[in-house]
């Protein structure tokens, strides 16, 4: 049986009077690519921020390798963070630093490795993401897809066990998205990395996922394999996959509700 590396139990988070996460339970297994999908505002980014320890829940647990990270202090969290990498939606590169300097940042910050060793490691990571020879380029000289790849090289700089991806295909065309997807699959299989991906790009979801969690209004509607999600009988899941305007996911308020809303 696959080993559980992330376990979320009864996670609840409220902003103001809005419950953004409403009793989330899920498990992520070692080596798998686990996708959290759902529409805008469904709570998936908030869930991701809990998984990386960026925010604390109102209640519930987030266990990474059996350690409840919601209870960790800053030092404890720093130690756990060394074991995972993060690819941000915007790539989050520092524009004033070269590609090499960006990728080497976590190594310089968290290790005592010699500069010559870090240099070789950075070149190896850039080779893995297909950017050999781009060490001295500045982020402004790169395309969106290349920036994502630099971000990915930085995410794997410390040889993490887990990599979190926040909307990896945001702002990329379909071909570049497919390239990034393939890279994510290759890296996770070759380097045995557990991947957690937050996205609403259905093409990506069905390319990369081993298992999928469908999030809606702060609750998990269903967790399953690609086939299970494709064949789901849940009308909300089906509407989301098909991208239909009509269905249980309502964007336009109708009738009396709308009138009440406008005149309140």
């Amino acid at each position: 049986m696959a080993k559980t590396v992330i376990k979320v139990e009864n996670l609840i988070k409220t902003f103001g009077n809005r419950r953004v996460l409403d009793g989330i339970n899920l498990e992520v297994y070692e080596g798998e690519t686990f996708v959290i999908m759902g529409g805008s505002g469904c709570g998936k980014s908030t869930l991701l921020r809990h998984l990386i320890g960026a925010i604390k829940p109102d209640s519930g647990e987030v266990r990474i390798k059996d350690k409840d990270i919601t209870q960790l202090d800053t030092h404890g969290m720093d130690e756990i963070k060394k074991r995972f990498g993060m690819l941000f939606q915007s790539s989050a590169l520092l524009d004033s630093l070269s590609v090499e300097e960006n990728v080497s940042l976590p190594l310089k910050e968290h290790t005592k490795l010699a500069p010559d060793i870090i240099k070789i490691m950075v070149k190896m990571k850039l080779g893995l993401v297909g950017l050999r020879g781009f060490e001295n380029h500045m982020p402004s000289e790169l395309s969106g897809g290349m920036k994502k790849r630099v971000g990915l090289a930085r995410a794997i700089a410390m040889d993490p066990d887990i990599v979190f991806y926040d909307e990896p295909s945001a702002g990329l065309d379909p071909v570049v998205t497919a390239v990034i997807d393939k890279l994510m699959i290759d890296l996770s299989k070759k380097l045995l990395i557990t991947s957690v991906v937050v996205t609403h790009d259905m093409n990506s979801v069905f390319r990369i996922a081993d298992r999928i969690a469908m999030l809606h209004k702060g609750k998990i509607l269903q967790i399953g394999t690609k086939e299970e999600i494709k064949n789901s009988t849940n009308p909300i899941v089906q509407q989301f996959i098909a991208g239909d305007v009509e269905g249980p996911i309502q964007f336009l308020t109708k009738g009396d509700d709308y009138l009440e809303h406008l005149t309140q």
Binding site: L113, I117, I118, I120, M121, M124, K125, D159
Partner: peptide, 11 residues
């Protein structure tokens, strides 16, 4: 062996 080990071998 992680990538720091591999880099040590390369060096």
């Amino acid at each position: 062996i992680d990538s720091s080990g591999l880099a040590t071998m390369v060096e």
